[in-house]
């Protein structure tokens, strides 16, 4: 057993290790990058799917903005109230109330209940159909075209085209707003998750024209508006809209609607 040999080996490796450690230590101090702890903590709490629904470039963009105080603590629509409270705790402020919202396609015109002007075969993109005669094959100019541009942009697989019309899955929707931005007919809006009744039509045609085009189109007959106990319904551009802030969910409008437009 060569003790000297063992000691020598230990000494050499030890010395190299020590030297390396010192070198890295010094380099670590000289090349230190300032990192905001709060920003890191916020980034850790955010959902991390970089959907951009908050309006910032990805979760790291929002974390930076929140840490600097430029964005409110409940800015993340995907994380919702849970994440908002956590971020509020990190930043040391009160979190505001955030109501969970989901997207809703205001059109029910599927293939059985609506008429087509012609058969279309071509590029399957709702935005492209602006260049096609009459804005698309559907008789109703304001209806959902069903070619799924909204489906392609949804990062959460929460919207699908069922029977020629787009339908939002309430449970999966995170209200990031991408489908709303892409729909060329502006059919999609945000409604509260707990909304009881919504008018599923955006038709701007007068009554007779709407009836000709679609079985479930709103004809602005005003029955819902007149029977609403809290005056939550308005008729604009020949279709009804329910103000969700005032709506109590009593369901009178749905009963009275002759065309079954309110769901």
């Amino acid at each position: 057993m060569n003790i000297t040999g063992i000691l020598l080996a230990t000494a050499v490796v030890g010395a190299v290790g020590l030297f390396v450690g010192l070198f890295l230590g010094v380099a670590g101090i000289k090349f230190k990058v300032e990192v905001d702890e709060k920003e890191e903590a916020v980034l850790g709490v955010l959902p991390g799917n970089n959907c951009g629904g908050c309006g910032y470039a990805g979760c790291s963009g929002l974390a930076a903005a929140i840490a600097k105080g430029q964005a409110p603590v409940n800015a993340c629509p995907v994380g919702g109230e849970k994440v908002g409270t956590q971020i509020a705790r990190i930043m040391g402020v009160e979190a505001g109330d955030s109501v969970r919202q989901v997207a809703f396609v205001r059109c029910q015109g599927d293939r059985e209940r609506t008429r087509m002007d012609y058969e279309y075969s071509g590029i399957e993109d709702c935005r492209m159909l602006a260049f096609v005669p009459n804005g698309g094959p559907k008789s109703c100019n304001d209806g959902c075209l069903g070619f799924g541009s909204c489906v392609k942009v949804c990062p959460f697989d929460a919207i699908h085209v069922v029977n020629g019309v787009a339908v939002v899955d309430k449970e999966a929707c995170k209200a990031c707003g991408k489908c709303i931005a892409v729909c060329p007919k502006n059919l999609i809006t945000l409604i509260p998750y707990d909304a009881k009744h919504v008018v599923a039509c955006s038709s701007r045609e007068k009554g007779p024209a709407t009836i000709k085009a679609c079985d479930v189109g709103c004809i602005a007959c005003q029955l819902c508006k007149r029977n609403c106990p809290v005056d939550a319904i308005t008729i604009e551009e020949f279709h009804a809209t329910i103000d969700q802030e005032k709506c109590t969910g009593c369901g009178t409008c749905k009963e009275k609607c002759p065309k079954k437009v309110i769901v």
């Binding site: 040999g5 080996a9 050499v12 490796v13 190299v16 290790g17």
Partner: peptide, 11 residues
């Protein structure tokens, strides 16, 4: 002590 080359190089 050339047999230490692997360890030292990796360090």
């Amino acid at each position: 002590i050339t047999y230490l080359q692997t360890i030292v190089f990796i360090l």
